[in-house]
Every structure is written in C-alpha cells, then in structure tokens.
Design a protein around this nucleic acid. Structure first.
Lengths: 264, 264
DNA sequence: GAACACAGTTCCGCTGAACGGGACAAGCCT
DNA sequence: AGGCTTGTCCCGTTCAGCGGAACTGTGTTC
C-alpha cells in the first residue's frame, strides 16, 4: 500500500463493482439498501440498482419481498459452501483441529500458504468463555505471525530471502522488523519445529504454530493454537509444543507427506 | 421457466460473467485455465482473461505462481465465511443439528424460508457409512419436499394459496401434483407438527421436517433428518417425530420465539 | 391532508469501457 | 526441428452500461 500507486493498473470496473457489492451484501447480516450501497461505494444509485437487479436475477442476492432491502441469495450460500469445501487443507484439518482444541483447550487454527501471506482457512473456538481467535479468511503476514514464521522457516532459501528483504511492517512494538534478527529466529524455529509470535501480530495475543508439509515435501500451511499472551507463554511448555507438532505431523500425512518431518 | 420468456429481461452481462467465473473457479478444487473457462462459458479468451486479471488484482482469485491455473483467492474464502456466518439461522442451529444427529443417527438438515423455496443452510452427516444428505445451498421446492411442506403448512393462508396454485412440477412419480391432495396433506401436517416426503423429492430418499418459528411467530425455516426411504419410514416412529419437533422448538426459542408452538 | 423527505425504480440519449480477433511468447508433446 | 497447446497483449470499433433526472410509493411532519 505505501509504495507503488503510480499507475495502479486498473481492472475492469464492472467486475470490481460487482464484487464490492457482493462483499457488502454478504457482510451485512440484515440487508442493505440501494442508497447506502451507492454512498458507501461512491457511485450512482442507478448503477448499483442495475447491478443488484442482475445479481437478484441470477440468485446471488435476494430482494426482500416487501421491496425493501437486499440480502444474501441462495447462489451465494452455495458458493460460500463450495469455497470452503475446496479451499485446500480444510477437509483434512477440521477433525485434527477439534482434537487439538480438546487436548489443550486453546483455540485451534489452520492456515494455508499463499503468495500474499498465510490464509486462515479453519478455526475452532477454544474452551474459554471469552472468544479468542482469528477470523477465517484473514491474511497473516510472513514476518509478523507465528504461522508466517513457521511456514517461512521451512520454505526454500529463495523464499526466505524474499521475506527477509521484503516489507517488514511493525504491527505492534514487538513485531520483528530487523532482517538479521528475523533470520536468527527462523533458524531457531527450524531447529525446534515450532514458532510463536507473542504480541507481535496484536498486543495481548500469542500464537503457537508448526508447519504442514504436502506430498512433495514443501510447506503448504500451518496448524496452531491462539490465546491471550497471559494464557499462552512465549515459550510454551513441552505438552503444548508436542501437541501442536504432532497435529502438524498427522495433517501432513493426510496431505500425502511421507517420510520424516524435518523436526520433532 | 416454462412460461414468461418473451422478453427475458437480461441483466448486466459483465455482472453475470463475473459471477459465472467466480462460481466456476470456486467449484473447481484444483484450478482452472483461461481456455477451459472460455469454452465452458462460451465467450472469448481475452474477455475471460481480463475479468480474471481483475479478480486476481482484487484478491478474489489467485493465480498460481508458475503462471498456470487460476484458483480461489483469499477474498473469496473470507467472503464464503461471511456468507455462512450471516445466512440467518446458521449460528443457532449447528449445535442442535449435531445433537439431533447423535440422538437418531440420521443426517440432520436445517433449511431457511426464501421466496424461491427452502434454502438448505446447514447439514451434518449421519452415522451410516454411506453419505446421505442434501448439499448446503440447495433450493428445495415448497410442494415437493418435507421442508417445503412443513414450512408452507404453518405459513399464512395467502402463501399457502400461492403454493397450491403455483408450479407443482413432479420430481418423481410420488410427488404430489394435485392441489386438493396437497391441501389435505398440509392440513394433516399442521395437525401433527411434522412433514415427510417419501420418494417425493428424489426416489429412494425420505425426509422428516418440522418448522422453526421466529420472534414474530412466522415460519422462518425447518429442521429435519434425511435418510434412505428404507431407513426412514413414511410414518416415522414417535421417537423420531418427537426428537425433530423438540429440536425445532429449541431452535425456535433461540430465534426469539416465545410462547407455545402451534403443534406438539 | 398538503407538503416534505427519502426510499427504490425507470427512462433515455451519449460515450468511453470493454469487446473481438488476431498476434505473440512460452511450454509441452511428438 | 515442427506442430499444438497454453496464457498474455494490442488496438480500432461499438454497443453495453452510464449519469442524471423524472417517477412512484411510504413514512413523517406540520
């Protein structure tokens, strides 16, 4: 975001608008109106209206009978389901996540490696009364999250270099922004098989994560647990790290990995 | 569909194409190429390419690094999650569905009332080794499914009339297509509080469903169980009907319904 | 109950965003 | 080498889709 908006290669406007509308409608539980959408997206009512009508006609959006607000349509529900079904690891992980949660009590999280960051693809809430966790669909940075560091540490050297020389934005005062320090931490993570990021992604929160390897032996994601920093220490006890690494190993096997993991 | 295609009010083409592309990409687990999309959707490669580039740029679609296939992007995963979070009953139902499945062993299903039919919003697989069920996102008819009949029976008379005088397509030879017969069945459903549709939506399948009422006392969906006709009789035993009706009552309370239900 | 404000919807002439078709490069198979 | 795929890029043409204003219905205010 900070750099590179000199030309800002524009895409097809109608595609952008369509997805913006779908996004807004999907995220607004109880229906949106034409006018509020128009002002929110900064365009004319008629444009929004025409787009909405098309989406209604196609079944992605549903217009409430008494001709008022627009909400999610059945095609979108179907689409949402298909998305979650097909987003990679998800099928293999849910049961393992539940088991991990039951074993340790903390929220469990699975993430997938993408070029832009670690994509959170599945979570199960912890047993504590207050809801701690990461939203499915969030994109975590490579340098500022336990997931990102765990994945990076076990990736190719070329990839590690890309991360180390790339954007190291500080999310909190604890985020590691010095390439040398980060590189040292990656070595440490590679040695022991797990990563933490106490207060590095958000103040008060800590995550413990281990990498998942696929059939080709490459990192494809991570599993881990999330909790308040006070409940999940920067250096978790062996029962925590063992449980997470064991879960990572089990999911790796489900993903087709054979042979020993490079840790544990 | 049969009638009313004289003018076929077309929507915005780019919106339609955008959603078609998103749909295809989301439903194809392991990535699609430009050319296959172009032929599948019957348009030019360049058009598809431009749309895809825009979607990539917006993060809805992700283009595999070695410049090959296109697959689901993180924005879509996030969108899918938002959709499922916000599609009405869903939050209130999952636990109840699991309990219902554990109690009876059959697949459990929740559906939501929409103007076009009953939208399946949540399912949990049964305990039998073979997978029986309805896909989330399916749209069930009012006259040809247990869900539809259960909802219709407890809806307003105006709505019932609309269903009775509307399209009564036969899905199998057992689908009720006679308005008088359907009306009689609705009376019966209203009296006892549950509906079945043995072999009426699909041969070999049966469903048992009861309506869910919201805070205003109006029907907003159904809960039920699905199984093979041979495992779930047309007139299920009292332990089945009681369990389903009890689940419906519990979810109704969660939806804000107070006071007695018009059955049970 | 007239006047207002604000919702969603519809209409129409103008225009530039998006289209098609073809060229191009890169990677597969023979 | 060739042929046969991919995905990507270019450019002149054109009609899809835009803005803006008019219309309709509903709830609110005096």
């Amino acid at each position: 975001m900070p750099e590179d908006d000199k030309k800002m290669a524009e895409g097809l406007q109608s595609v952008i608008l369509t997805m913006q509308i779908v996004d807004q409608v999907a995220r607004t539980g109880k229906g949106v109106g034409v006018t509020s959408l128009a002002t929110a997206l900064g365009t004319s009512k008629s444009r929004i209206h025409r787009h909405l009508q098309t989406l209604v006609q196609q079944g992605y959006v549903f217009q409430h009978e008494d001709s008022e607000r627009y909400e999610i349509g059945h095609q979108l529900v179907s689409l949402g389901q298909a998305v979650l079904d097909n987003s990679g690891l998800i099928g293999s992980t849910r049961d393992s996540l539940l088991a991990l949660r039951d074993r340790l009590g903390h929220s469990a999280v699975a993430s997938q490696l993408t070029p832009d960051g670690m994509l959170v693809i599945a979570t199960v809430p912890g047993r504590s009364p207050i809801e701690i966790g990461v939203r499915v669909g969030s994109l975590l940075s490579f340098h500022g999250s336990a997931q990102g560091k765990a994945a990076t540490a076990f990736s190719s050297e070329a990839f590690q270099r890309r991360v180390l020389t790339g954007d190291l934005t500080a999310f909190t005062e604890h985020t590691i922004t010095d390439p040398a320090k980060l590189s040292a931490e990656l070595d440490e993570i590679r040695r022991r098989g797990w990563a933490t990021a106490p207060n590095q992604a958000a103040l008060g929160l800590n995550t413990l994560a281990s990498p998942i390897l696929d059939g080709s032996g490459a990192v494809c994601g991570t599993v881990g647990i999330v909790d308040l920093t006070q409940s999940l220490a920067a250096e978790p006890g062996p029962e925590h790290t063992a449980a997470v690494m064991e879960t990572a190993r089990r999911i790796s096997v489900l993903m087709g990995h054979s042979g020993p993991l490079p840790f544990g």
